[in-house]
């Protein structure tokens, strides 16, 4: 008289903790990549704008490739490339590097748009008031350009948070991979996916609405 053996067990409170930790890892890798990617993206965007020819052919081409190849392919490619050049790395580091470059590629475009949004006459005026090139960038281009493209930057950041789900292919235990594992064990896909979806939604929806509001109030 034995109980029928089951490989599956129901959804428990512990599993919510497991999902929560995974969500934390999603946030961690996104935050790291967005920060590093934005810093590089600003630099790339500025150099694309400042030196048309040289930067366009070098940085421009590379960033273009990163925008035209699926992120998942980039992740697998680099994860398998790093050991070749002798850098044995875990999924987090590899994922963060690739996501950062990907973010930088998107941010560079946004930044270039921002610098171009500041009219040439405005910048000439700044220079003829005796500002140096860097002062012009810091006190004229930055505040005006930032306003013009901040909403698109938020859009990039949100898409990076969503795309960070792809780091799961490297075995990084982020939210979607954790849910997949739980689904395999509990056979309750609906609840688990609803939890995961709700987390992304709760993160992304308010931010996108907020940036939309900002955009409206700045353009009017």
């Amino acid at each position: 008289m034995s109980e029928p053996i089951s490989f599956f067990s129901g959804f428990q409170v512990n599993d919510l903790v497991f999902l929560g930790e995974a969500a934390g890892r999603t946030l961690l890798i996104s935050a790291v990549s967005i920060t590093i990617g934005t810093i590089f993206g600003i630099f790339f965007g500025w150099s694309l704008q400042a030196s048309k020819w040289l930067a366009q052919t070098t940085i421009g081409t590379i960033l273009d490739i990163f925008r035209s190849v699926p992120l998942i392919i980039q992740l697998i490619l680099f994860y398998n490339f790093f050991p070749i050049i002798g850098w044995n790395t875990g999924p987090f580091a590899a994922g963060a590097v690739v996501l950062s470059i990907y973010t930088a590629a998107l941010v560079a475009n946004v930044v270039r748009g921002g610098i171009e949004a500041v009219g040439i006459p405005m910048r000439r005026a700044a220079r003829s008031l005796g500002m140096s090139y860097w002062q012009d960038l810091r006190y004229v281009v930055w505040p005006i350009g930032l306003r013009a493209v901040f909403p698109s930057w938020v859009g990039v950041a949100l898409s990076v948070i969503k795309d960070s789900a792809l780091v799961s292919v490297l075995g990084y235990m982020e939210l979607l991979r954790a849910s997949q594992i739980l689904i395999t064990r509990t056979q309750e896909p609906f609840i688990i996916l609803a939890c995961a979806g709700a987390f992304y939604f709760a993160l992304s929806y308010p931010l996108s609405k907020y940036s939309q509001k900002l955009e409206e109030s700045w353009t009017s």
């Binding site: 789900a165 979607l176 995961a196 992304y200 992304s204 996108s208």
Partner: peptide, 18 residues
Amino acid sequence: ELARNTPALFQLFFFGFG
């Protein structure tokens, strides 16, 4: 809003497992 605010992979999983 759901399509824009959740990862595409989540949406695929939903059509798959969900």
